[in-house]
Design a protein around this nucleic acid. Structure first.
Lengths: 224, 224
DNA sequence: TAGCTAGCTTAGGCGTGCCTAAGACTTGGA
DNA sequence: TCCAAGTCTTAGGCACGCCTAAGCTAGCTA
């Protein structure tokens, strides 16, 4: 990964969004089809073609029609920087400023593009060097390494499994509020009592209480 | 002033910069010539003409050739919101994250455009409702009122004056570092021993020490 | 193998925010 | 009074990031 930060490299917000999305779609390991990226970013396929061409010129992605787009090592570096900014900001907003886990995503999405390396570092230090954000996602190190995740989706659990909530998707605030309302926070221990049948809810035992978890919530929850 | 926040009103970063600059140049009280604004923002006069036309359509400025540009009440509201964001961010960075007073300006200039009202409020609360930023500039209230400033420029002081540093311009980090190196911080008390003669330095007595203050530093310092 | 369809790219266009170059208006001095 | 200088606007253009519409390609199915 390049030593230059995204700020010094003057990548635009939009470019950073594309790189971050590519990273999230696994463009480090395998090529990502443009259509997938278009859906993710809610832009037209034509826009994706344009932007991928620009990013290719900048040496941030490789791109051929047969396979799709992949991040170069430099592109991965920029993407990881954005992911680090995003997750660190989420952690900071929750721990230092009293945000709830359902309030931080949009704020972090805006701020991640304009914080300096200095601010990043100060927040990191203020939090004592956190490893995870408020949704259980790992915060990449400055060198770009990520702890391997061993969790599995709540949907994949079998009746009788005793697990803890380890991670949730940060995308949908409403679902996050619903999970919290059911008593599910990061680290909450519970037992899976009933698996989902015919797309019905899962049933959990949590603090002696039986709790029904709709499919849509179970899908964004991960446990170990 | 409109109740809508700049975010909800979707003013662009650039528009907000123009409004803030106009506010700083006194476009509430008197019309500001476009050339002055162009110099301030380091853009061409033609760009200013363009942008003022857009802002006029949005009802944020009035603009006639004879006089120049003035902020409407709504425009003043947006400008003050940016000023509030900027100064609050500066205060937060210094007090909560250990920045020095010469490090905060650029960071705040970027962040002021993308923080939510929620974040603004959380920072305000975390600081206990501060009235001034680290350079002694007053932080406007949400309703847009500003405490009146009674300070005067250090340059205007006479020999024998006993005063305290109350405010400095936040624009030039190097000068801020130089002031600090001379022992001058907000609230520092000193006596003016010698006024500037033939554009030479002022002389101050500060903690029994005699200190020479170059004209360029005295110009950005204010006292009361 | 031929044709259809899904997916990608090209072409052309739009709004924003900037630019330079050239014209118009004002204002003060000769 | 009239010219010169400074100021402001107009005209035309560029990069960015997006769009729609139309064309191309490739792979699957009949």
């Amino acid at each position: 990964m390049s030593k230059l930060t995204a700020l010094a490299r003057h990548t635009s917000s939009a470019q950073e969004d594309y790189l971050k999305a590519l990273y999230g779609l696994g463009a480090v390991e395998a090529a990502v089809p443009p259509s997938r990226l278009a859906r993710e970013l809610d832009v037209s396929p034509a826009s994706v073609t344009d932007m991928l061409a620009k990013l290719a010129v900048l040496g941030l992605v490789t791109h051929d029609r047969a396979h799709g787009a992949r991040l170069t090592p430099t592109g991965r570096g920029v993407a990881l920087e954005m992911v680090r900014h995003h997750r660190l900001l989420e952690a900071y907003l929750v721990q230092a400023l009293g945000y709830r886990w359902d309030e931080v995503h949009d704020e972090a999405d805006r701020l991640e593009h304009c914080i300096s390396e200095v601010l990043e570092q100060r927040m990191f230090q203020a939090l004592g060097g956190p490893s995870f954000d408020p949704h259980g996602d790992p915060i990449p190190s400055t060198r770009g390494s990520l702890p391997r995740e061993h969790d599995r989706c709540l949907l994949a659990c079998k009746a009788g499994d005793r697990v803890r909530l380890s991670r949730v998707s940060d995308r949908e605030p409403e679902k996050l509020r619903a999970l919290r309302a059911l008593g599910l926070e990061l680290g909450t221990a519970f037992e899976v009592v009933g698996e989902s049948r015919w797309e019905g809810p899962l049933e959990l035992r949590l603090n002696q209480r039986l709790v029904q978890v709709p499919l849509g919530l179970a899908r964004i929850a991960f446990v170990h």
